[in-house]
Design a protein around this nucleic acid. Sequence first.
RNA 1: GGAGAGGUGGCCGAGCGGCUGAAGGCGGUCGCCUGCUAAGCGACUAUGGGGGUAUAAGCUUCCAUCGAGGGUUCGAAUCCCUCCCUCUCCGCCA
Length: 426
Amino acid sequence: MIDRRLIREQPEKIRAALRHRGYEFDLDELVEVEKRRRELLAIVESGRAQRNALSEQIGRLMQEGSDAQSLKQKATALGEELTQHEEELGQVEEQFEALMLELPNIPLEEVPIGESEEDNVVVYTKGKIRRFDFTPVGHWELGERLGILNFQVAAKQAGARFATDVGAGATLERALINFMLDTHTRKHGYTEVLPPFLANERSCYGTANLPKFEEDLFKTTDGLYLVPTAEVPLTNMHQDEILTADELPKYYTAYTACFRSEAGAAGKETRGLIRVHQFHKVELMKFVKPEESDEELEKLVQNAESIIQALELPYRRMHLCTGDMGFQPRQTFDLEAYFPAMDRWLELSSCSQYGDFQARRCNTRYRPHPKAKPEFVHTMNGSGLAAGRTMAAIIENYQQEDGTVVIPDVLRPYMGGMAEITPPLP
RNA sequence: GGAGAGGUGGCCGAGCGGCUGAAGGCGGUCGCCUGCUAAGCGACUAUGGGGGUAUAAGCUUCCAUCGAGGGUUCGAAUCCCUCCCUCUCCGCCA
C-alpha cells in the first residue's frame, strides 16, 4: 500500500509507474473515490460534532433535573440523517480501501524501464561456466538415475509437480538448508526463526499476497493459507508494533517449506525441481530505517550471493525491469545460476526492497527519536537461497561423465564427509 | 474439544452509561537542583484521519479509536450479541 496522500498530490507519478509496469488500473476512479471520500467525511464529521454537542447539553440538563425531551427529539432526527451519510461513507471507504490494495508499489527511479524478462539488465556475471566434454544430463534425469529424486513416488504421494528427495538427495537438500542457515546466522548476523508454515489472512494481506494473488496460494478448509514463502511470517513478525530506533536494523532468516499453487504456469521450466508446488527455501528478511534501505539491500544481496559463491556455481545478477518486477517491490535483483543441461540461467534468489509498502499493510513502525512520531519502517527480503533449485544447480554443474555427482566442499561436513553421490550398481 | 478468567496508551494498571482520550505508576523528553554517581523537584509525553493556517518543521480545530465487528441509547471503554486472541484447569495428541 502506498501513501494515500500521493493519490491527490502526485497522481502523475503513480500514472507513470503504472505505465512502466504495464499494469492495468483505473487510476481516475481511485482519484475520484478519494475525493468523494473526503467530501463525505467532512459532512459526516460535522454531523457528529453537532450530535456530540447536543448529547453533552442533554447530559447537563438531565443532571440539573431539567426536561431534555425536545433536545432528545432533535438529536434523534439528527442521528437519522447522520446514519444515512455514514452508510454512504462506509461504502465509499470500502471501495477506496479495495482499490488501494490493488495498487502496486512505485518503482525506484534507478529501476530499468522495460516490458518483460527480455529487458532485465545483467549487472554482472561471476564464476566459471564449466566446459563439458560430454553432454550434461538434466538434473531431473540424473537425479532419478542416482535414486535421489523421485517424481513418480511424489506423484503417488501427492500429485503432479511435486518432488520427493530420497537418500543422499534428502541429505543434500538438508545439508544445503543447514549450511545456509549457519552462514546467515553466524557470519551475517541474522536471527534464526522457525515460523508456522500456515499464515492467516491478515498476514497475507500484509505482504500483499492477498487480495490480488489468492489463486497462487493453497488455502486450508479453516481459512488459513500455506505460506508461499517465509517472507509472509517474517514480514509479520512486528505487525502492529512500534519499534525503537536502536532496535533497527533487524535481520531475520528462516527456513520454511514454500507452497505455491501456480495454477496457470506450465511449459519447459516446469521440469524437475524448477517449478513445483512445494519447495524449500531459506529466506533473508530485514526491517530497516528508510535512510538505510539501499545500503541494507545491497548487503542482503551479497549475503545471498555468498552462498552461491561458496558452492562455486556460475551465476549472474539481474536488475529486474519495471515490467518484470512483482506487484510489491520498489526494486528487485535476481541471482540466477547457470544450468548447463538446460543451457539456461534460472533464479536461485530474488531480493526485493519494498520501501514502506508492506510496513503500511502490516502496520510496523518505529520512532526515529524517543519523542518523535512513529514512521513506517522499510522492509526487504531475499531468498538465501531456494534449496531445491540450488540442489538442481549442483546436480547439473557437478556431474561427471559416469553419472556421479561431486559434493561441493562446503557441504561435505554437513553430509558426514560424503564427497560424491554415485549411481547404484547395475 | 470442554470449563472458567481476561484483552484499556511505549509498558503496567484503574475505570463498568454523560464532566474519561481515559486516574495512578513505570518508561521517555526537556528544564531546575545537586562540585562525580545516585536521589529529588517541575513541565511535557497515544495513534490515525479531515479542515484551517503556515509549508522546513509548526500551530489550531473537528472526527474516530479502550481486541474486531454488530446492536441498545440523545450519549458506550462501561450494557447486549457474534467472532478473534491470551491465561488457568480438564480431555486428546507428536
